[in-house]
Each structure stands twice: as C-alpha cells, then as structure tokens.
Computed example of a mutant assay.
Amino acid sequence: MSDHAADEATETFLAHRNLLFTVAYEMLGSAADAEDVLQETWLRWVRADLARVRDRRAYLIRITTRQSLNRLRSMRSRKEAYVGPWLPEPLLTAPDVAEDVELAESMSMALMLVLETLSPTERAVFVLHEAFDVGYDEIAAAVGKSPAAVRQIAYRARRHVDARRPREAVSSGETRAVLESFRNALESGDLRGLLDVLAPDVVLVSDGGGIRQAAPRPVVSAGKVARFIVGGIGKNEVSLTGEPIVVNGGPALLIRVDGEIDGVVTIRVEDARITGLYYVRNPEKLRPWTREDLDPAVRPVSR
C-alpha cells in the first residue's frame, strides 16, 4: 500500500471509529472486547483495496460485525463459567448522548441484558437495523444471510425485545429525579425511602465476577431489595456515597464505600419507580475508575 493509500485508509477508519466501537460494544457488552474487535477490523481494513470499495462506511461496519460475531460466539464459554450474574461493562459517556434517545436506549444496561437473550446473529441484526438503521442488504452481507432471511430474523428479534423492554420511554430528567431519591435513601440507609422509590416487583442484579461479593442470583421484590441494601450498609458500618455520573447514555451512580470506589449503579424506571437495579462491582469492569493514574475516560460513541 502506498503512503497516500495508507493515509487515506487511516483517515477513513478514524472518521468512523466511534461508530465502529459503538456497534462492537452493543453487540458484545464489553468495551475491552470492542477495542480488540476494532484492532482486528483495522488490520483487515488496511489490507483492503480501497479502489474497489464502493461504500467505505458499510464495508467497515461489515468487517466489525463479522469480527464481533466471531468474538461473541467465543465469549459464550466465558459467560457460562462466569461466577454469578453477568452485567455489561459500564461505559462513562458524555451527557449529550442522552439527547439521542434511540442511541441512549440501545446502550442502556436494561436493553443490553435483553440482547443477551438473543442468538449472536439475532443480536447483530437487531443492533445494526434498530440502533444504526443499516439496510437489510448490507446486514445480509455482514452476517452471511440472504436479505429475506435477515428480514425474518429482524422481525423475530424485534418481537422478542419489544416483549421485554419498558412499555414507555422515560426521559433522562425523570430518571435523574428517581435516581436522586434513591441516592438520598441509599446514603442515609433509609428503608422507608427505598421502599418508596422501588417498584413492588423491582429486580436487583449485582455483578461481582467472583472477585467481589455480590448476590449469587437476582434479588426480587421491593422489600427484599431494600433490606438487602440497608442490611449490607448496617452490617458493615460503612460510609456509602453515590456520585451522579452518566453511564451508557443515562443517569447512574458511582458508589464509594469509605471513600473507595465500590461499583457503578444504573437503573430502569417505569411509572416514576425503579423496576431494575444493576450494580457492577467486578473490578475488571471498573478499571477506568479504579486506575490511580487516570481519570475515567468519556467514551465517544455515535450512530
């Protein structure tokens, strides 16, 4: 490849890098794996004959999708051996990501957990079509299926996801208000306050990865979740604080125990109450926050 062609390839890749990262992350739920996919995409991209590539964006998405599918299938064994519930790696994102409602929803912890129940191909088709508005012909080329088959897969995946997603979209402002009430009750150990902000059928999922203590299975119902939270604070006699941050395009809390980073909490809200609590404590998923020499980097994501 000539120097001019190499410069052109680099410029094109960098122009689409944020998009490619977002595609890979939404398919994998892991920023570390998404970065690995981008490296693999780059190695294949620089070997491509750019003169024969009609749509460079589509071509890059195709490479990224194929590499993500390969990695997604290989991740199955890792997840099967995972200790306790698995949650996606939280991404610190800029507040303005929430303004792109579709992108913010597609990256939300709640929806990404639903995507975990899809097959790898269903997930790829859903993410590409619903989150990034990629056409069926382009998706077909990326996943190795016919356009007709992709349409059927997209329909099946959409029905599956729609049956499990919140009935109505909730604004980031409403989520922030509910999260602030939760934060106040959390910091004060107020059982009554927690019960007021939790939906009766709320589900708490905590991810310690076998490294940090976490509930071995989801905790269900407001009473059990509230007692689980307050009991943990009282038993250990610790000082617990929650710092408002934006994770995966939505309001979240960075939890500190006695001043040390303990985890990241995101929530799902319906009818002004919390129906889902997602607490990531696995330190391997919190490296951007726990490295002493580096503040957590805001992930530039795009559609």
Rank of each mutant, 00 (worst) to 15 (best):
R123D: 00
A124F: 04
V125W: 05
V125T: 06
F126I: 00
F126D: 00
V127Y: 11
L128G: 03
H129M: 01
H129L: 01
E130A: 14
A131P: 11
F132K: 11
F132M: 12
D133M: 11
D133S: 14
D133A: 15
V134Q: 13
G135K: 14
Y136E: 10
Y136M: 09
Y136D: 10
E138T: 15
E138C: 07
E138L: 07
I139V: 02
A141F: 05
G144F: 06
K145E: 10
S146N: 04
P147G: 07
V150R: 06
V150M: 04
V150F: 03
R151W: 05
Q152I: 05
Q152M: 07
I153N: 04
I153F: 08
A154K: 08
R156Y: 10
R159L: 11
R159Q: 12
H160S: 12
V161P: 03
R165T: 10
R165W: 02
R165V: 10
R165I: 04
P166T: 09
P166G: 09
P166D: 02
R167Y: 09
V170E: 05
S172V: 14
S172D: 13
G173C: 02
G173R: 12
E174G: 08
T175P: 00
T175F: 01
T175W: 04
R176E: 12
R176G: 05
R176W: 13
L179G: 08
L179D: 04
E180Y: 09
E180N: 09
S181H: 13
F182Y: 15
F182V: 02
R183H: 06
R183V: 03
R183L: 05
N184A: 14
N184E: 13
N184F: 10
A185L: 06
A185V: 02
A185K: 12
A185W: 07
L186Y: 15
L186G: 07
L186R: 10
L186Q: 06
E187G: 02
E187R: 03
E187I: 00
S188L: 12
D190M: 03
L191C: 08
G193D: 00
L194H: 15
L195D: 04
L195Q: 13
D196L: 11
D196N: 13
V197R: 08
L198M: 06
L198I: 02
L198N: 05
L198R: 11
A199M: 01
P200C: 03
D201Q: 06
D201L: 01
V202C: 07
V203T: 10
V203E: 03
V205Q: 01
S206F: 04
S206I: 00
G208V: 09
G208I: 03
G209L: 06
G209W: 09
G210F: 10
I211H: 14
I211N: 10
R212S: 12
R212L: 10
Q213T: 14
Q213E: 13
A214Q: 07
P216M: 01
R217I: 01
R217T: 05
R217D: 02
P218E: 00
P218G: 01
V219Y: 01
V219C: 02
S221Y: 08
S221P: 09
S221N: 14
G223Q: 15
V225S: 12
V225G: 14
V225D: 03
A226H: 13
R227D: 11
F228T: 15
F228E: 12
I229H: 14
I229P: 15
I229C: 15
I229D: 12
